[in-house]
Simulated scan of single mutants.
Amino acid sequence: MFTGLIQALGTIKPVGGDFWQITCVSRSETIIQDLTYGDSVAVDGVCLTVEEVLTDGFIATASPETLRRTTLAQVEIQQRYVNLETSLRVGGKVGGHFVMGHVDGTGRLISAEQTASSWEMTFAASNNIARYIVPKGSIAVNGISLTVAAYESELSQFTVAVIPLTYSETNLSHLVSGSWVNLEGDILGKYVEKFLSPGKLDHQEEITPAFLAEHGYL
């Protein structure tokens, strides 16, 4: 589990094969010193397991499913920086929101406009991700915890306001129009969807106002 607060930038070098072994080099000594064998680390929002710690990075393996669902296999990402975050420690601060590192799919940058106090960035999302997007809700873009400022359901597009610190210290500043990004919807929305979907509960009982009243919620 992560919080969506990026700790460092790095670069990746895939080895290839069905299971890609990825060597990640970080510009930050702090994040490397915090890693040990078997740790989880988010690479552009993708949770990977550290198999070997190097002096300037680490080695992890990405499965075919991970490569299919994320941007890690794209040539573009191999030519730019990736966001890095180590896993949340018990008792640690949660400054963003709970990010699982289980990417739901990819989206692409539509536009990025600088304002007086921030950058307004608009992204397009696929339908399987768009259903979890709500105004003022949380979303992870390349592992970055961001708040949805606006959402256009007809276009499946959402806009976020990015403060200068986040823009400069993450790889958002390296994106151009059309760049693909990893997206993860808020885990709370997924559980709400499951519980409210008729016929999907184990006991097959739909949650209705009557059900809530019977169980003391109204």
Rank of each mutant, 00 (worst) to 15 (best):
Pro209Phe: 01
Val192Trp: 07
Gly189Ile: 01
Leu201Gln: 14
Val103Tyr: 04
Ser145Met: 03
Ser179His: 08
Arg108Ser: 13
Asp44Phe: 01
Val134Asn: 09
Thr11Gly: 13
Gly185Leu: 00
Ile77Leu: 13
Glu184Lys: 12
Gly185Cys: 02
Met1Val: 07
Thr71Ile: 13
Gly45Thr: 10
Leu155Asp: 11
Gly57Met: 07
Pro64Ala: 06
Thr170Pro: 14
Leu172Glu: 07
Glu152Leu: 08
Ser117Gly: 08
Thr30Met: 06
Gly107Glu: 07
Leu146Arg: 10
Phe2Asp: 01
Asp18Cys: 01
Gln7Glu: 15
Glu76Phe: 04
Val162Pro: 11
Ser117Asp: 12
Leu48Lys: 02
Ser87Glu: 03
Ala42Gly: 10
Asn128Gln: 12
Glu51Asp: 14
Pro135Ile: 03
Met1Pro: 04
Thr71Val: 13
Gly38Thr: 12
Gly10His: 10
Ala130Lys: 10
Glu29Leu: 08
Gln157Glu: 14
Val103Asp: 04
Val134Ala: 15
Leu155Trp: 05
Asp56Phe: 09
Gly199Ser: 07
Ser63Met: 14
Ala125Val: 09
Pro64Arg: 05
Gln114Gly: 03
Arg68Phe: 05
Leu201Ser: 14
Leu165Glu: 15
Pro64Thr: 05
Thr49Ser: 07
Val160Lys: 05
Thr61Lys: 13
Leu35Trp: 09
Thr66Pro: 06
Thr36His: 14
Ile32Asn: 15
Val82Gln: 13
Leu48Gly: 00
His203Val: 06
Leu88Tyr: 00
Leu165Ala: 12
Val160Phe: 06
Ala73Tyr: 05
Ser26His: 12
Trp180Gln: 15
Ala149Asn: 15
Glu152Gln: 12
Lys194Met: 08
